[in-house]
Design a protein around this nucleic acid. Sequence first.
DNA 1: TGGCAATACTG
DNA 2: CAGTAT
DNA 3: GCCA
Length: 534
Amino acid sequence: MQLGVGEVVRIFGLTSDKGRELNGREATVLTVGDRCHVELAGGDAVSVRNCNLVRAGEYDSDDGWNVGRVAKRQRTEPGSASSSGSSSTALAASSAAPSPAGVSEEGAVWLVLSSYSFPEGCACVANAPIAAAFRSLEKFEVSVQCDDDASEERHFNSEALLYSRAAAVAAGVPFPLSQWMPLGKSGFAYQILSSGSCEALAKFESGRPPTGSDNALRLKNEAGRSMGSAPEKRQLGKVFGLGAKTAIDLVEAAVSVFTAAGCPPLLRLGSLLASLRHFDELQEPVSEAEALEMRRHADFMGGSRTRGRAGHDVDLLLWHATEPNSWGEGEEACVLLPLLRELLLPAGGATGPGLLPKEEARLQLVRRPHAEKQRRDADGARAYLPRRKAAAARDRGSDILHGDWHDKAYGIWRNTAGRHRRIDIVVVAFPDELPYARLTWTGSRTLNRLLRHRAIQLGLHLTANGLTAHPPAGRGRQETTVVLDARPGRERVEVALVGHAPVPDCTSEEEVLRVLAGGTDAFAGIYDPLMRNA
DNA sequence: TGGCAATACTG
DNA sequence: CAGTAT
DNA sequence: GCCA
């Protein structure tokens, strides 16, 4: 990276005791070269290698988040990443001497978001039990009916959806529901506030079928699935790799001893054994110290987000201010695979901290081919973004090319204390997709559904990669009008998008959410990723 | 009365 | 394709 | 089950 005298930079990646104190601090460049002299805020001058500096402006503005070097890679212009000729020398050097993640000659810098913890998440604490009860009801409904309830009429779980929305509302309203609503004496909220539970929840918790709004027992759902034994199904479905349907089948078949050896072959038990073996640990909350340790082993450094409760897993979201997550063919030319190679434990029962290999645990990779990722259409747009209907839509209904092109790995991590924890690693495909990726991966699931549902209502299509117009099927290139800004006291901004064009000028979650709020700040409460409690 | 978020990997 | 994952 |  070419730095200039006077530029403001940030220091990162120093490993000595003295260096560690400098990590994350900003400084002004005094002299340039292989080593730079930089002046710290207090006036002290220090000498730091060029590869341990990055322009302050290249960072996302979220202050205090983590900076680490996690990949050896060649810096190229994003647009020319796929042209093999331009950077062949550097690429050859890279692949000839693959170095561990974290040893970056060029000093590529990635930011790390650990979204493992969030606030308890009720705007009004008095509503916390109501939100919790609704969330629990949602989970029980999914446990007995699945997300897809498999009936003819409705192939999705309406009860669970409504419970999840109710929980989101209860968590979000800034006043006590008890003093606001006509809490009918038989209503859920009234029951929960007065007794701590409600009839439906009590029935689920005791394994009995609940009573429906028509006062009849819901013995079976429309697809004939039993509504009973909800706690057992809910518990079984927590096994990583084993979902609601299998849990239902197992319980219904009265398979009582689940962890016994020699489970029936109808189960896909190969990689599930590790999930079962570590089941209890995988349900435990992950402490901040553990999350930090997981990052340290990826050579992640820096502060952390410490507010709120711990989750049962750790999500790592990696991105770069200017560059994509892959820049050529081959494993070395991407971020995720060398990082995994660094983290992965050898097969055969290795001890020590690291990511359990496929032989010992479920480990799922999600990666798309580099070349395809970098392919551009004639106009320079990414070929994988939704654009137009495929010719003649012959693949019944799949009319648009979509893709989630962030590389991902879902697995199980063993820490130095020998505890096993779920870990998800996501590498943002292109820098401008960061707001969409972070919006998706900070969740919650229900918030994603609410926001994407809202996008649909606005004629838009929200994914982890972007926000695009989504005109109704039909021929012709139709226009979608989008309100970018309708805040009071400002000039109103609208754009007319043709076809599946992306919504312009969304460089932050705030701007994305403002579009979804019709140009207003109605969603200001969730601009901060820490406040996404729905 | 149609639709409910959207997408990817596994066996 | 059904199930599971985010 | 609710809503555009």
